[in-house]
Amino acid sequence: MSPAADSRQELKELLKRLRAERPTIVEAATTRSNAQRATRRVIKIELAKGPATVPALASACSLPSADALWHIAAMRKYGELVENGQDGDYCLYRLTPNDEGSD
């Protein structure tokens, strides 16, 4: 085996061992993460249609508006969306070009 393959195998074994050491924590984290990714996919599909406010996005995605805002904050922090003007008392958000159409 090449050194890279060795290293991949070592990582695989380490992750397997650690998952066995803390199964409950890893399972709970995985469940939360999967749910979060599913929500994020829906948000991105909505935003791909055009800029939206938090209440509009929350309504379209059937999410509490506070949760929708949290996702907006997360996506903004990691460069997945930007502000795009205002609609009344609310900011509009749109996907950054790299994220348009993804997921």
């Binding site: 938090v54 209440p55 506070a66 929708a68 805002l69 609310y90």
Partner: peptide
């Protein structure tokens, strides 16, 4: 900050 501006955590409204 988390939102880049002051908005309400409940729904993103710019507070009056």
């Amino acid at each position: 900050g988390p939102y880049g501006r002051v908005i309400r955590p409940s729904d993103g409204k710019i507070p009056e």
